[in-house]
Each structure stands twice: as C-alpha cells, then as structure tokens.
Design a protein around this nucleic acid. Structure first.
Lengths: 138, 138
DNA sequence: TTTATATTTCGTTATCTATCAAAATAATAG
DNA sequence: CTATTATTTTGATAGATAACGAAATATAAA
C-alpha cells in the first residue's frame, strides 16, 4: 500500500524557522554577503571580524547546517561559499539567499566588508594565518 | 551647505537584522501567515494559539514595530493586518513579507491555522471573548 | 614519526528572549 | 460616574544563544 508521498513544494514551518533564525544575526548576515561574490577560507573570514575564530567557526557551521553555505577542504584550509545551483534543490534555501542578497546588496557594511576582503585576497593565506597567531591586536 | 542625503535604497544591516529577528520565531511566522488573507482582532488571534494573550500581544507588537504588521482600533477591539501598499514605502519590509509568503504559502501549518480562522470568523467576537474569560480549557 | 598549524568542539559565562500571571490602560456599557 | 472588559505593560522565570579560551581533530611539513 503506497504511503502518501511528501510534498516537495511544501516548506515546513520548522524549516522556515531554522532558515530565519540562521539569518537573524548581524555577523551571519555579514558572512553571507561576504561569501556571495567568492569563496573564502576560514582564516580569511576571521580576519574581517573582530571575533574569536571559534565564534566565526560556530556561525559558519550554523549557516552550513541550514543549507545556506557549502564548504570544501583543500589541504589545511577549508573554503566556504554559497551553495552551487546544483545544491539548491531546496526552494526555501534559495528564497532565503535571494532575500539576503536583495536586502543587503547595497548596504554600506557590505561595501566595507568586501573592500577589506579585496585587501585580504592580496595577501598570502600563510602570511595571514601567521599574523593571526602573532596577534598584534594588543 | 547641503548635507549628503541618506540613500533611500540603502537597507542598513541593522534594519535587516531587526526584520530577520522578527520573523525568526514559529509563532510570529504563523501570525504573519494568519493575517495575510484578512485582518483579525486580537481576541480572534489568541483563539488560534495555546498561549497567554499577553504573549500574543508581545509578538504582535514586535511585528508591528518592525513594520511587518499594521493595526486599527475599533471600539474595544484592535484589528491587526498586513501593511497596506501605501504603508509599504519601505522596500525591506516588502521583501521580507514576500519572502515569508513564498516560504509558507503551502505549509501544512498555514492550512491548519487558516481553517481554524474560518471557524472563528463564524463566531461573534463577543461570544469569543466570553469563552476566553470563561476558560473551558481545564 | 614528530612537530606545527588551521579549524572545530567543549565548557563556561553573560546576554537575550519567550512565557506566564498579575497589574495597568483604554474604551464601552449600565 | 461606576463597572465591565479587550488589550497592553510589567515583573519574574526558564530556556536559548553568542561569546571566549582551552582542549581536541585533522592535515601538512620537518
């Protein structure tokens, strides 16, 4: 006897809540906008924020778990990016990413963060991590 | 000397965060979907949820403060509704409401809640409030 | 293998938030 | 005016979440 197939177009309230909670935090919104044009490794991302790397890691993992980010491992580095179109079989995730992009496309914080990324991209990741360990912050 | 005019199209990160937080809660998502087809007064809304009316009131006020709901007073009743198009000068609010609607349009919880609203609409609000005071819940 | 290191996980703390009951508001009804 | 009542505000409490530093993982370099 055939069980009623789950409706693919039916986005559950629970999933919508997970997605909304995932984007309901300033740092995570900045993270998403930061990764929209290009992928970045964790050490490059940490450089943009004045937060502990464990904190950034937690945010990244939450976004990934919600389906809003993907990642790939390359050597010791882990690169985060927006999900590829092939990963976006889930319409709720796609709608959420479009919402974020539409809202924050021209936000001043987005511009500031992306300009900083441009400078970070010109550095060698190795030198970057070295500087992070050195900790010239205080 | 003319001060630089604030860019109307620039949605601040802060506002985006407020909107996302407003929507990042199951009860508030249900509230929005409940009020999408028609306005309802507070006592009708309370009837749908198994929560204290003070809790519902807090959720409604939060949504209203974010710009996601409007309200009008009629006698002792206060009716909540989606903002009229004329109130939607703010593109961020509009985008957020569209996002919620797209996500939850066909969610099963939305259907359930709306069917219950249909039954509630057939009752006299006066009888409804009486029943709520009477409290036949226990 | 041993060392170094990029990232995550764990344990803790402080802040935020959802909830309720009770008191306060505001508006009608008697 | 006084009583009733729909809604909001307040105060208190429990649960969720963001933050950090330290320990644990996993990979590359020596």
């Amino acid at each position: 006897m055939p069980v009623k197939a789950p409706d693919q177009t039916d986005v559950s309230l629970a999933q919508a809540t997970v997605l909304a909670k995932a984007v309901a935090e300033e740092t995570r919104l900045r993270l998403l906008m930061l990764l929209q044009p290009q992928e970045l490794c964790a050490c490059q991302i940490v450089e943009v924020f004045e937060l502990a790397n464990s904190t950034i890691s937690k945010h990244l993992s939450l976004l990934k778990q919600a389906g809003l980010l993907a990642s790939r491992k390359s050597g010791r580095w882990i690169y985060y990016r927006w999900p590829d179109p092939s990963d976006l079989q889930d319409p709720a995730v796609d709608l959420t990413l479009q919402w974020v992009q539409a809202l924050l496309q021209s936000a001043s914080q987005t511009q500031v963060d992306r300009e900083q990324v441009q400078q970070i991209l010109q550095l060698d990741p190795v030198a970057l991590c070295l500087r992070q360990r050195g900790g010239d912050c205080c």
